[in-house]
Simulated scan of single mutants.
Amino acid sequence: MDPLTELFSSMRVRRAGFTRMNAYAPWGVESAGDPAIKFVLVVRGSAVLTTKSNPTPIPLGAGDVFIILGDEPYQVCDHESSTMAACVDVDAQRIGNQIEFGGGGAVTTFVSGFFEIDRLDAKPLLCVLPVLLHLKMEQERTLAFQSVLELLATETEGPRLGSDAAAARLFELLFIHAVRAFTQECSIPKKGWLAAAADKNLAPAIRAIHAEPKKAWTVDLLAREAGMSRSAFAARFKSVVGQTPLGYLTEWRMHKASRLMEANSVRIAEIARSVGYESEAAFTKAFKKSVGTNPSIFRKTVFGHKPTLAKDPLWPG
């Protein structure tokens, strides 16, 4: 199983929703940011996007998609001089899943949506993606990706049986296709496991680690999976991923272990064995070094509904 498939398969969507908005010039919408993953598809018309970390205006046209990860503040408008209205005020004009907003001029139609994913599920992916993904219409898209966008636009045109559930699932598919498209572009991150998963030399080793995290991997064995010499593999892995092969293996094991801890019926010793540690003591030492606390405290704090440690990065950015 490739790492993206594994991550998407384990992600649990907590909450999802969508809106179809007709914005009539002049108009402007601003968001202070929230932790959900947000999608916007421009169905027709044009707009301008700015975010806190990308203040340079980004022109948007029909067919463009942008995705904002995390709590990044952003603004979307028909023109930079337009007055901005807060998202909550615009949302107050909602009728069902439809919003009509603006000054009565030329119309821009958006389909926007959001979903929330468990923080620990999403951490390995979100730490290697930029805050903003902008996929322009003129960029080459697969037929499947374009089909999802067209289905989303059609599904949100008007109320129909099961439309909310269909739209929520289409947004999940959109996320998968967007990340896949991002990995195939020259803008792929220079470091991180996502870059390695798209690297023809390193990808076999990454897939091997994810397929068998409990195996007693060595740098020699992983280099053999990659079809490279030990020294060349170790140097390339460190350059692309930003950590050593065995360091990455440990981080992935700790991520797997943290997910298993949600089930209180599974003992720490069993979790340790499932991720490749022969003793609970060795696992506890590795977990504390990686996460900053021992497994039992982590389980109680994170899954006992105490949010203190949930904000700490399990994976370094």
Score class of each variant (00 low, 15 high):
E140T: 15
E140W: 13
R141M: 09
R141F: 10
R141H: 08
T142E: 12
T142Q: 10
T142D: 14
T142I: 09
L143A: 15
L143S: 14
L143E: 15
A144F: 07
A144K: 03
A144T: 13
A144D: 14
A144Y: 09
A144G: 12
A144M: 06
F145V: 04
F145Y: 15
F145S: 04
F145N: 03
F145H: 13
Q146C: 06
Q146D: 13
Q146W: 01
Q146G: 14
S147W: 07
S147A: 15
S147F: 11
S147E: 13
V148L: 01
V148M: 00
L149I: 01
L149Y: 01
E150G: 01
E150A: 08
L151F: 12
L151N: 13
L152Q: 03
L152T: 01
L152I: 01
L152C: 04
L152Y: 07
A153E: 03
A153T: 00
A153N: 05
T154V: 08
T154W: 04
T154N: 05
E155Y: 02
E155S: 05
T156G: 04
T156Q: 04
E157K: 06
E157H: 02
E157F: 02
E157G: 05
E157L: 13
G158L: 11
G158I: 00
G158W: 12
G158N: 06
G158K: 06
G158A: 12
P159Y: 00
P159W: 03
P159D: 05
P159S: 02
P159F: 01
R160V: 11
R160S: 14
R160T: 14
R160C: 10
R160E: 10
L161Q: 15
L161I: 10
L161E: 15
L161N: 14
L161R: 15
G162Q: 04
G162T: 02
G162M: 00
S163G: 08
S163Q: 06
S163L: 08
S163E: 14
D164T: 10
D164L: 11
D164E: 15
D164I: 09
A165V: 07
A165Y: 09
A166K: 03
A166E: 09
A167M: 02
A167H: 00
A167G: 03
A168Y: 01
A168G: 07
R169L: 12
R169F: 08
R169E: 12
L170W: 00
L170G: 06
L170A: 05
L170T: 05
L170D: 05
L170N: 02
L170F: 04
L170C: 07
L170Y: 00
F171H: 06
F171D: 03
F171C: 05
F171L: 08
F171S: 06
E172Y: 10
E172L: 05
E172F: 12
E172G: 09
E172T: 10
L173I: 01
L173G: 13
L173N: 12
L173C: 14
L174F: 10
L174Y: 06
L174R: 00
F175L: 07
F175A: 02
F175E: 03
I176Y: 02
I176E: 09
H177A: 14
H177F: 15
H177E: 15
A178F: 03
A178I: 00
V179T: 13
V179K: 02
V179R: 03
R180L: 15
R180H: 15
R180K: 15
R180M: 15
A181N: 14
A181Q: 14
A181Y: 08
A181L: 09
F182A: 07
F182C: 09
F182T: 07
F182G: 06
F182S: 04
